[in-house]
Design a binder for these strands. Structure first.
Ligand SMILES: [Mg+2]
Ligand SMILES: [Mg+2]
Length: 1243
DNA sequence: ATGATAGGGGAAGCAG
DNA sequence: CTGCTTCCCCTAT
């Protein structure tokens, strides 16, 4: 669950599986670039045409009238836009049905009004008279006159101030009216609940007021900077791309149009826009065009120039009917044209022009309007030709791979450079001046800047690069990779530097054209394959946001719009959109006001970077009981935990009290009526349930797909809600709410674990955020299923809405670390038979930053380990495989791609402060210098190989003296430089070995040294590592951790030394322990200070606590080890490690067998037991989890957690210090299992 | 400027 | 040499 995935099915996976199956049968469609003329193979022409029906092209006679229905104009809204130059005017773009077709239309909405709200000082509206008049007005809603008059009187001073403010900003005409409004958000100065406020309405053509106004008679101003477009969408309840109707439209004469649309109308005032539109159901067919440019680099200016352009388009895409590939990819549906130009004025190669003529004269050429391919002399004429074709096309949607950050950016720059007339036809709004394109791509991984969006207003941009990044999980998002994996197509790379070479001969130049067409076709294919348009439309309609914004991938914005609609409809004052600066200013100010007395420092929240500490605590991850499990393990998982918590506990802006001291908010009082946020989520969940039930009964494939898209959109929206609560740049940012949700989540998980272990009596071996893994010790599927059902029943009893579900049964499971495990899942195939599916989570094999060689070895080892074969066989198979790998690598029999490591650029390469140490950054910088397009920009992944340089004799130069980053190269560099060789040593020692050795940690019969030996590495180097990191130690550690949880009782610690700490002034004092803090004996702020310290809150820092605890723990170790066999060494010598925990072959590690302790070990163990007890005592003093577990209920636990918050970090640091040392000593406690009877659930 | 936090792990630099 | 910190990346949920 958690973020993108609450329902147990990862969204991305669902998505891929569903689509690949539907489209998979198209093996015959081999575009075979560059031989075949894409976008379609000749074979495709024989195929029966699909459902794409082009609209009848009757000649439309423009008589100046409008196609009104009952006096209003039906209008399918596609996009909307606001111009800084024309404040108060909103441009709506869409399609209008006219004479059996649909035409592009621009509605110019003028005379929009701005509404801002002044919240009065408390006490402004008050008194018995007001109460009386309110009651009167309530009884007789028709007669509000006296009440309003009274309100105006009471607000006289406020009104005077408001008038002055307005006058100051040049606003002379306005209406002021007292209205009732609610507030529930984060401004401390504005009281929550409903009250009278002053609403000021004035023409939006006038200037706006600044955010954050202050005054004598008001405590807050809302809506000052609200965009007029947003207010129209909210006021008219326009929910995304849908049919609306325009009343009283007047036709704008073609000569006076401000847009390039076929039709333009003028509408006065937002009230003439209605979200209701009778008679229109189906969305209109859209013109979808894919665009691809080929560029060459101008050496002096260092700019990209357009050399070729292709457009592949579908004249009528129906949004509600996702199309099968066979349907859209046919000669009847698909159209295309290309434009090519001469390079540097050089003539085209011999025979090329004849080829062009032949192409255009062909059957396909005629079908594409006679000029399928146009050869132009210059870039300028190319652009003019392209623009003319685009004008005739009038596309609604432009598709392309990275089209927003590259193709359109280049296109606009070149149009500007050549001063091409009517350049603004690329968009739909007429313009003379160019917007500044400076911002370029979005901050992260492509996307359009604001200038580009402005220029393109009216046409949607569907960028498959952005879409794929959002919906897929791939090693990189280049078209070559996506085409191979998702379209089954191979795409050859064509670097800008190789473009001039294509001009040498006519066939080569035709290759260039075909490559361009093919790229456009691939982008169109990908967009169709991913259903980008239907999905993004659904998301826009659910949230009531603009389609263009959704296509930009602005996820937080969608949720914002959804909540804005909901809260606006309920008459709430909405949180204003603030700039980063304004937000910070506000945060500082509110913090200062809240902490005027205690002077707590303001915590800097770095909003931009992912770096920095988390703002609040998230999900609970249980300490895994590591090992290999050969009996069935149950995976139970709460359905949509966070959305469910919001509903179950009625968590909303309106219900949660925000504590001023930064502690976790208390749960809202139980109430019968559901608050806004839970209601919104419930609505989404209910709608999804309905859609899913429709889906279950639907047989028609197309309709099924459509429902599935809808269902996914609903789930995505519900799941994103929590994320936006915790997102500091969101207008609905409410950390207390986010924190409360996660706190409840932790509580629920912990109490579920307790319930399962105590009441059901089963062992929980792991759990993450919303899931538990339960050991059954049975091998029979049905038996395990019954146990799962029992667990599910017991857990679900405790909640109204929350529901845990048996998500999977693992026949066999390898649990290595938190968030790192693998299993054989028992699943059902279509016929209902049980099938076994391997599942790997978090392991190196599922990461892109390990090379394929290492991952292949890891997968082999994992398959062996999970095979259920005898341990010796598994080990020998792995050893053999590693020896074989070593041989192959030495023989050079491993292909280069197996050595490629991928890493993403999370910043621009030049922005890394310490670039010299990062391989991928070094490679990226060199590629950028060489003007490579891919693997150079922020958000892209860089593939690299670690090499060594050899001299003429083939001897390594300087055996890899430099850092790793200096030895990282791109494949292309490797190919070009014969002195570079793959650094075999690095790959064996630093890639293959760690990957395999981690997997084998819990496996008997091998260790890091043995594995190293098999790889031909020096085993001696791994002995120490083997000792420190072996599975046995981990197993012991788990046993010890488990024992502390079950055997903790105060009596055992009565002989222990206290935990002495030293304060800053040198005073020594015993740390009282977390228990005393919770029971109220000591204030949290004083816990890490001497009892008699004068100043409170002057306790030790987390780092200081950690250091001192470490010292005390070391002293304890030293004390108990004095005079023992290994006096000065905390660690057991490697060769005496032979007391094996796993005396019984099939006992899972971590489950110490009760009979391991022999009498001989016993005596030695006693002193160790005392040490163990001492360290556990320290641990206990610092670990709140035990004390918390003892509390009565969740409410108390929440309260306690809140109380501990100020010292949480220090406790954590101290606890970790103890654990570190205790773990290092863990060898010695082999025998303690019996002493303490470690496991409650011994076999 | 453009949903969250928890967690493992590699590489390098620094103090001892 | 080892610990420890910092930076960076990618994953799980
Ligand atoms: Mg879940
Ligand atoms: Mg889960």
């Amino acid at each position: 669950m958690g973020y993108d995935d609450h329902g147990g099915n990862d969204y991305n996976n669902d998505y891929n599986n569903d689509n690949i199956d539907d489209y998979g049968g198209d093996a015959g469609m081999d575009t075979g670039m560059p031989d075949d003329p894409p976008p379609e193979s000749p074979r495709g022409e024989d195929r029966p045409d699909g459902e794409v029906k082009e609209e009848p092209k009757e000649e439309w006679v423009d008589d100046g009238s409008l196609p009104l229905v009952d006096g209003t104009l039906p209008f399918f809204l596609l996009d909307a836009h606001e111009e800084a130059a024309t404040p108060g005017t909103v441009y709506l773009f869409g399609k209008v049905p006219n004479g059996g077709q649909h035409q592009s239309c621009c509605a110019v909405l003028e005379g929009c009004m701005r509404c801002i709200f002044f919240v009065p000082q408390p006490g402004t509206f008050t008194g018995a008279e007001l109460t009386r008049l309110e009651a009167e007005a309530a009884a007789n809603p028709g007669a509000k006159g006296p009440l309003l008059r009274h309100l105006h009187e009471q607000a006289a001073a406020l009104k005077a101030e408001v008038r002055a403010v307005l006058a100051e900003h040049g606003i002379d005409k306005f209406v002021i009216k007292p209205v009732r409004r609610n507030y529930a958000f984060e401004l401390d100065s504005v009281p929550h609940g409903e009250q009278w406020v002053l609403k000021v309405r004035y023409s939006a053509a006038k200037p706006s007021l600044p955010n954050g106004l202050e005054g004598e008679h008001f405590v807050g101003v809302f809506g000052a900077q609200q965009s007029v477009l947003e207010s129209v969408l909210l006021k008219r309840r326009i929910m995304g791309p849908s049919w609306i109707s325009l009343s009283c439209p007047t036709r704008v004469d073609a000569s006076k149009q401000v847009s390039w649309c076929k039709l333009e109308v003028k509408v006065e005032g937002h009230k003439n826009v209605s979200s209701k539109c009778a008679g229109q159901q189906e969305p209109p067919p859209l013109i979808v065009a894919a665009l691809n440019l080929k560029t060459s680099l101008h050496p002096q200016a260092n700019t990209n120039e357009v050399v070729a352009a292709s457009v592949v388009y579908l004249p009528a895409v129906n949004l509600d009917r996702p199309l099968s590939k066979a349907a859209w990819n046919s000669s009847r549906s698909l159209r295309h044209f290309s434009v090519l130009r001469k390079l540097d004025g050089q003539p085209f190669p011999a025979g090329f022009e004849a080829k062009v003529q032949a192409v255009n004269a062909s059957e396909m050429g005629r079908r594409n309007g006679g000029t399928m391919l146009s050869a132009q002399a210059s870039e300028r004429s190319l652009l003019m030709n392209l623009l003319a074709r685009l004008r005739a096309l009038d596309a609604d949607v432009l598709v392309g791979h990275n089209i927003a950050a590259f193709d359109l950016d280049v296109l606009l720059h070149r149009l500007q450079h050549h001063k091409v007339p009517q350049w603004s036809r690329v968009g739909r709004l007429r313009r003379s001046t160019f917007p500044s394109l400076g911002g370029g791509g979005g901050s992260f991984g492509g996307g359009a800047g604001p200038g580009l969006m402005t220029a393109m207003a009216g046409r949607l941009i569907c960028d498959t690069y952005l879409g794929a990044r959002e919906l897929l999980h791939e090693v990189d998002y280049t078209m070559a990779t996506l085409a191979r994996i998702h379209l089954g197509q191979t795409r050859s790379d064509l670097a800008a530097a190789d473009v001039p070479g294509k001009y040498e001969a006519a066939p080569k130049l035709m290759e260039l054209v075909q490559h361009t067409e093919s790229d456009a076709w691939l982008a169109l294919s990908l967009a169709m394959h991913l259903n980008l348009l239907p999905l993004s439309r659904q998301l826009s309609c659910l949230s009531g946001s603009l389609w263009s914004r959704t296509l930009q991938g602005q996820r937080a914005q969608r949720i914002e719009m959804l909540l804005l609609h909901e809260f606006y409809a309920r008459k709430f004052l909405l949180p204003d959109k603030l700039s980063g600066r304004e937000r910070e200013r506000l945060a500082r100010r509110q913090h200062a006001a809240a902490h005027a007395d205690d002077g707590e420092a303001f915590e800097e929240v770095k909003a931009g970077g992912k770096k920095g500490k988390a703002q609040y605590a998230g999900g609970l991850v249980l300490e895994p009981k590591k090992g290999l499990y050969n009996s069935i393990v149950l995976l139970l998982d709460f359905n949509s935990l966070y959305p469910s918590i919001i509903q179950e506990y009625n968590i909303c802006f309106t219900t949660v009290r925000r504590p001023k001291d930064g502690s976790i908010a208390p749960l809202p009082e139980p109430s019968h009526d559901l608050a806004v946020l839970p209601k919104v989520i419930r609505g989404l969940v209910q709608r999804r349930r309905e859609v899913k039930s429709l889906l279950a009964n639907e047989r028609d494939g197309v309709r099924r797909q459509q429902l599935d898209i809808r269902q996914q959109a609903l789930k995505l929206t519900a799941n994103s809600m929590y994320g936006c609560l915790g997102f500091s740049a969101s207008r609905f940012f409410a950390r207390p709410l986010a924190e409360l949700v996660t706190a409840q989540g932790r509580d629920i998980l912990q109490s579920t674990v307790d319930l399962v272990q105590s009441s059901v009596g089963l062992e929980v071996i792991y759990g993450d955020t919303d899931s538990i893994m339960v050991r059954t010790d049975v091998a029979k599927e049905e038996e395990a299923r019954a146990m799962g059902a029992r667990v599910k029943r017991e857990v679900n009893k405790r909640y109204k809405l929350l529901e845990i579900e048996l998500d999977a049964m693992y026949k066999c499971m390898l649990l290595l670390k938190k968030k790192k495990y693998a299993a054989i899942k028992l699943d059902r195939d279509a016929a209902g038979r049980t099938v076994e599916v391997k599942e790997a989570k978090g392991l190196d094999m599922v990461r892109r930053d390990w090379c394929a060689l290492a991952k292949d070895c890891g997968n082999y080892a994992l398959d062996e380990i999970l095979s259920g074969r005898p341990c010796e066989d598994v080990v020998s198979a792995i050893h053999a495989r590693l020896r074989q790998v070593r041989e192959k690598v030495d023989a050079g029999a491993v292909t280069l791609d197996k050595f490629v490591i991928h890493k993403q650029l999370t910043k621009r390469p030049e922005d890394y402060p310490d670039a010299k140490n990062q391989p991928h950054v070094q490679v990226a910088l060199r590629r950028a210098a060489a003007h490579k397009r891919e693997g150079t920009k922020q958000g892209e992944t860089v593939p690299y190989i670690i090499c060594i340089e050899v001299d003429e004799a083939g001897q390594p130069k300087d055996g890899g003296a430099g850092g790793l980053a200096e030895r990282a190269y791109h494949r292309e560099e490797l190919a070009a430089n014969p002195a570079l060789r793959v650094d075999v040593q690095y790959y064996l020692a630093n890639q293959v070995h760690p990957v395999v050795s981690r997997l084998c940690a819990p496996i008997e019969g091998t260790d890091a040294a043995r594995l190293a030996d098999c790889l031909g590495l020096d085993p001696a180097k791994y002995h120490a590592a083997a000792a420190a990191g072996s599975g046995m130690r981990d197993a012991l550690e788990d046993a010890l951790i488990a024992s502390t949880a079950t055997l903790d009782c105060d009596a055992r610690y009565k002989d222990c030394d206290p935990l002495w700490l030293t304060s800053a002034d040198g005073t020594r004092f015993p740390f009282v322990g977390v228990q005393d803090v919770l029971s109220g004996g000591v204030a949290p702020g004083d816990a890490f200070a001497p009892p008699d310290a004068a100043a409170t809150g002057s306790g030790l820092s987390a780092a200081q606590v950690a250091n001192q605890v470490r010292l005390r723990a070391r002293e304890a170790v030293a004390k108990y080890y004095e005079g023992s066999l290994v006096s000065d060494d905390e660690l057991m010598p490697v060769n005496t490690r032979n007391v094996c925990l796993r005396a019984q072959g099939d006992a899972a590690p971590g489950m110490a067998s009760p009979n391991v302790a022999s009498a001989g070990h016993m005596a030695a163990a006693m002193s160790e037991a005392a040490l163990y007890t001492q360290l556990s005592h320290f641990h206990r003093l610092l670990d709140p989890s035990l004390a918390l577990a003892r509390l009565k209920d969740d409410t108390e636990r929440l309260e306690a957690t809140r109380r501990l918050a100020p010292i949480r970090e220090a406790l954590e640091a101290g606890r970790k210090a103890v654990e570190q040392l205790r773990n290092r000593c863990a060898y010695r406690w082999v025998s303690l299992g019996s002493l303490y009877n470690v496991t409650a659930t011994g076999a």
